[in-house]
Amino acid sequence: MKRTHLPLNALRVFDAAARHLSFTRAADELAVTPAAVGQQIRALEDVLGVVLFRRTSKGLELTDEAVAGLDTLREGFLRFEESVQAMQAGQSSYSYAIAAPHEFWATWLAPRLAAFRKENPEIRYQLIAGEEVDFTEANLDIAIRLAEGPGDLEGLQLAPAMRVVVATDSAPDDWIAWPGAPLPDGAEAVLQVGNAAQALASVRAGLGKAMLPLLLVEELLADGRLKALQGPEPGHRAYWLVAPRPQWRQKKVRQLVEFLMA
């Protein structure tokens, strides 16, 4: 029998039924109905061409054919568990590969990662340049993206999608435009930049005003380094923590996400 044709689910049901010698108790363990257990056992018997259980006045009994393969089957399941544990161990619990926009790393994420590491000194970080990096190619654990939603990934929104027009106290009344923030009708930009990082750097240098995500500039507004000229107001894009489902389920990723969301 080819490996791809192994009836693994039916073998798992057989193992449970053999341990309990009861379809009902096996069903309780597997969170299915006794009828489903019976169907799996009959299907397995059809595939193998043998009878696995017989009913007696005392209840279910294993046939000689069932007993002959049971120890090896259970050893196989143990090897499966060891294999899974080995694969999980290959992903370090203390190392994070993170992709994030440069400006967001500098103003929001880096201080929080420092606080997380203060509580967990064994932690190590690797920052991957570019928020749209492929998770598989870069072996990412998690990414932060400025987007309308998580797309095909699992994700949590860090804050509501709010935006605000900001400038320094001495800045001229000139617009700085970037692709993520359309200008008001009739407004003309004196400076066109490529992303939020360049827009924020230009604002902080006193070149003019720009519309930026509130979460990006919230702390700069709070300590007076920037001032709000308009807003905050609802926007379309927010900062999202995103990852494919396998990464999202990792214990270390859940711990970091819980810390950042807190």
Rank of each mutant, 00 (worst) to 15 (best):
G194I: 07
E61H: 07
W240A: 02
Q40K: 15
W105A: 08
V166N: 09
K118N: 06
A17C: 07
I98Q: 09
K2V: 01
W248T: 08
T107I: 08
K252Q: 05
L260D: 09
L48M: 14
L158G: 03
G194R: 14
E218M: 09
E45W: 10
F104S: 03
P121Y: 13
A210K: 06
A129H: 13
A129M: 11
G224C: 09
T72V: 13
V190I: 10
V193W: 13
A205M: 12
F14M: 08
K227V: 13
T4G: 04
A189P: 05
L44K: 04
K118T: 12
R245I: 04
Q157W: 01
Q88V: 01
D173I: 04
L62A: 07
Q88A: 14
F104N: 03
G208D: 06
A197H: 15
R225H: 13
E258P: 00
R79A: 12
H236I: 09
A16L: 11
E119I: 02
S202L: 10
A181F: 05
A89V: 03
G38P: 02
G180I: 12
M1G: 11
E81I: 14
E82G: 01
A196L: 12
S57C: 02
R3S: 11
A243W: 11
A18I: 13
T107P: 00
L113W: 07
Q198F: 08
S95A: 14
P7N: 08
S202H: 09
Q126L: 06
K118W: 07
Q40Y: 10
S22Y: 13
A243M: 09
A181N: 04
K227N: 07
K251I: 04
R3W: 14
S57E: 13
Q250H: 10
A115L: 12
A228L: 04
F53Q: 01
N139C: 07
A159N: 05
L153T: 06
A115K: 10
E154W: 13
Q250Y: 05
E137N: 07
P121V: 09
V84T: 09
W108L: 05
Q247G: 03
A31D: 08
S92I: 11
I144A: 01
E119N: 13
D134E: 14
D174T: 07
E65Q: 14
L30H: 06
A36C: 03
L21N: 04
D223Y: 11
L220R: 09
L220P: 00
D15A: 15
D64G: 05
P34E: 12
M162C: 01
W248R: 05
V257I: 14
G186T: 02
I123N: 01
R254V: 03
V193A: 09
L52K: 12
R3A: 13
W240K: 01
E103K: 05
V165F: 00
Q39F: 06
L21D: 03
A16N: 02
G151S: 07
E119P: 00
H236P: 00
R112N: 06
L183V: 06
L241W: 04
S170M: 09
P34Q: 09
K58T: 11
